[in-house]
Design a protein around this nucleic acid. Sequence first.
DNA 1: TTGAAATTGATTTTGATTCTCAAAATACAG
DNA 2: CTGTATTTTGAGAATCAAAATCAATTTCAA
Lengths: 152, 152
Amino acid sequence: MNKEVGRLKNYLVKKRLKLTQQRETILEAFLKVDHITAEELHRQISQTGPQRMGLATIYRTLNLLCEIGIGQQRHFDDTRTIYDNVINKKHHDHLICNKCDKIIEFESPAIERLQEEMAARHGFTLSNHRLELYGHCIDWEKCRDWQRATGR
Amino acid sequence: MNKEVGRLKNYLVKKRLKLTQQRETILEAFLKVDHITAEELHRQISQTGPQRMGLATIYRTLNLLCEIGIGQQRHFDDTRTIYDNVINKKHHDHLICNKCDKIIEFESPAIERLQEEMAARHGFTLSNHRLELYGHCIDWEKCRDWQRATGR
DNA sequence: TTGAAATTGATTTTGATTCTCAAAATACAG
DNA sequence: CTGTATTTTGAGAATCAAAATCAATTTCAA
């Protein structure tokens, strides 16, 4: 049993919730990815195991993992929610390639500092922020899906 | 006929589209607001004029105005699209108060510069970005809706 | 004025996500 | 262990904003 399963177990006990087979399966699958949608995770789990699993359970559990702090919701394209596995990650922002959908995480204390400054200037106290940079990889070598898609 | 109606007319002619009563009505109503949802604009127009107007027409026209550059879609709360009237506004980012829903627009060339730098460092060419700062007004005097809601 | 082409609006559809509820699983007391 | 109260599950229905459909209406260029 790895550390995160223990963390989940702990949370569930505290809240008088139950540790189910499904919750463990979903957590384990989620820990193996970096970013994923509920649908995609559902597909993966359905293919992999003999275990049947409802899509609603995936959504419920993914949201549970977000409560615990193992995941975080992202909304890069305004249609689907992407769940970000934030285990072993500190706060970060995102660079998203419009061509190959690559997601790069970065952090910039300098930008954060300027954000605080802007907020203060307008009489605001910040609680959180969203910074997403959209563009494309300069180097096509690194933009694999784009190469594949365009046949280059 | 104001400048923006001319601009719409121009675009429509160029694209062989038609200037309709509805499109003019929607443009004029939109120009009077700063930020608005399609539903809310629909409500306003339905109340104001004797003109009946379908919600689909509002959506279609608002998206048309975004193509022209008169409006821009925003997704602050990830549920509804807010249309930002960007006539006479340059590029800007947003500060959103979680208590009173106030939206403040700001610009920070310094932040933009750092964004470009981060992108370059990761081999990216930027096409656009999204920066939203969430928090609350420090000064309650300025946070009217919050005062109202909490009864302070 | 005329008619091809575009637009409208009532309605249906879409698609992601949440809700519902009966059946199944879990956990705790004894 | 075992019974039982409580929670969870999964299939499908509900929801909601937004887009699509399509027959009727409007626009506009010739």
